[in-house]
């Protein structure tokens, strides 16, 4: 299983999903009403490294994080 965490203001509990890649995750999250609107403005990290491509294999125990728009300072 892959753990999905939703950071900052998304405010959703972690999910645990059986997926092999980010394209599968995209399809799952588009059907989650409380997350779907965040997808276009959120960056994605796999195991705490930001990624720029969906072409990444996921394995059991991986963590995917969604990072909505930021404003430090």
């Amino acid at each position: 299983m892959v753990t999905i965490e939703f950071l900052g203001p998304i405010g959703k509990e972690n999910m645990s999903v059986d997926i092999n890649n980010l394209s599968q995750l995209s399809e799952i999250l588009k059907d989650e009403a409380d997350v779907a609107t965040w997808l276009e403005k959120s960056a994605v990290a796999v195991n705490d490294t930001l990624v720029s491509s969906k072409d990444i294999d996921l394995k059991d125990g991986d963590k995917v994080s969604l990072l909505p728009p930021v404003c430090g300072g």
Partner: peptide, 17 residues
């Protein structure tokens, strides 16, 4: 209240859209 109007999407945002 989330300061959405002052926030910036991180480079690469929208990958799962």
């Amino acid at each position: 209240e989330y300061a959405e109007d002052r926030s910036t999407a991180i480079t690469g945002a929208g990958l799962l859209n």
